[in-house]
Design a protein around this nucleic acid. Structure first.
Lengths: 210, 210
DNA sequence: GCAAAAATCCGACTGCGGTCGGTTTTTTTG
DNA sequence: CAAAAAAACCGACCGCAGTCGGATTTTTGC
């Protein structure tokens, strides 16, 4: 059978991933060469390309692990019955913090996830799928609690909020939003707008505000 | 003075741009090498790097021209007093069509614009700035016509709609939205949601729809 | 248990984007 | 107008990601 072979394979893969984690976090993604990865992992260069299609994909694989971790971690400590705005805020901010622990790191992740090349399409769609799934769950509960309209398509509500996440991510990477507090404020405002509606006559608590 | 010099400089720059337009549209961005560009333009390779900092920047310069064109073109044929949703729809769809005339083309543009590297940051912020400016103008008129609430921060309204554009762009590049019609429908739905609000009790024309 | 087949591994090699030193062309200066 | 200074130009060169043909290890068939 394929006993020994499979074990070795997993071991090699693990070795590559370990090397990636170590070197990427030590010196960043851009400053780590595939040769260095190979040496650190104790394998040949093309062996790596037998396991991953590109340097970016090694990176995405690493992200996949981490994202799973963040999600389960988050699922545990999130109270599923706090108001929807608060839950989403926590989710988004957690993601942002995660994504931008290392600047290159985050940029590559979001670039690949949000505007994938053909090559990495599959992997990155996996990640997005998981993300939207988690979002959908939170929103479904909110709908059933009566915090959101129930006459809308769930997908489009998810999309609506996900769009905000994309926006702040983008603003973050364009340095328009400079620190976490600004991001949080922006998200809060946007979500409030979304809930109340932009058309006149909606939720104008204090019409003559200014 | 610096007559001859300046003329020549402009000519060289133009030659490079022309070569870029030709080769990029002929063979795509990824399949065009800087050497080929140099040969086509009739200059040395490093001359190119005297005019542009990177291959991507050549591309952005090209985009800048084109975006200006699209904007002025659009400004002319857009009726500034049609309903806001319709105007935005036209703007976004026009942009999408522009961006995705060539697949690589669009992906690189949006990647660089939305998640810029340090190097291209300046140039790409220019482009975003222009974009948000145009958006802001449209929205200001809409507010003064009473189509939008006047108690909100203009920047955040722009952001709200811009977020939708990012979302559909992303969905487009992830192949979740497969043709222009789907994109248009999605945008329409999202904008309607945004106008009405997501909280219960807002604009539920036909509560028992399904 | 051994040969043939299959899977895995390897480092020399290719072609790319980008840089560097030296050369030519234009401008400035006296 | 000559010569020094400045600007623009060039192609050989570098380090990188990714590939290729062949060597090595594991599995399979008998």
């Amino acid at each position: 059978m394929s006993g020994l072979r499979a074990i070795k394979k997993r071991k090699t893969r693990r070795a590559i991933m370990d090397a990636a984690v170590k070197l990427f976090s030590e010196k960043g993604f851009e400053n780590t060469t595939v040769n260095q990865l190979a040496k650190e992992a104790g394998v040949g260069k093309s062996t790596i390309y037998g396991y991953f299609q590109s340097k970016n994909e090694i990176f995405l694989a690493f992200c996949e692990d981490e994202i799973n971790f963040v999600f389960t971690d988050l699922a545990e400590k999130r109270d599923p019955d706090t108001p929807i705005e608060k839950q989403l805020l926590t989710l988004f901010m957690e993601q942002l913090r995660y994504v931008s622990r290392n600047y290159d790191f985050g940029r590559i992740l979001v670039r690949e996830m949000i505007f994938p090349k053909e090559l990495t399409m599959e992997k990155s769609n996996d990640l997005s799928e998981r993300y939207l799934g988690a979002l959908g769950e939170i929103l479904t509960r909110a709908i059933s609690r009566g915090e959101l309209r129930d006459d809308l398509d769930l997908l489009y509500i998810s999309g609506h909020f996900y769009a905000f996440y994309l926006l702040v991510l983008s603003a973050w990477y364009q340095r328009r939003l400079q620190n976490e507090q600004e991001v949080e404020d922006a998200l809060r405002k946007l979500m409030q707008q979304a809930m109340e509606g932009l058309a006149p006559g909606n939720g104008q608590h204090h019409t003559n505000k200014r």
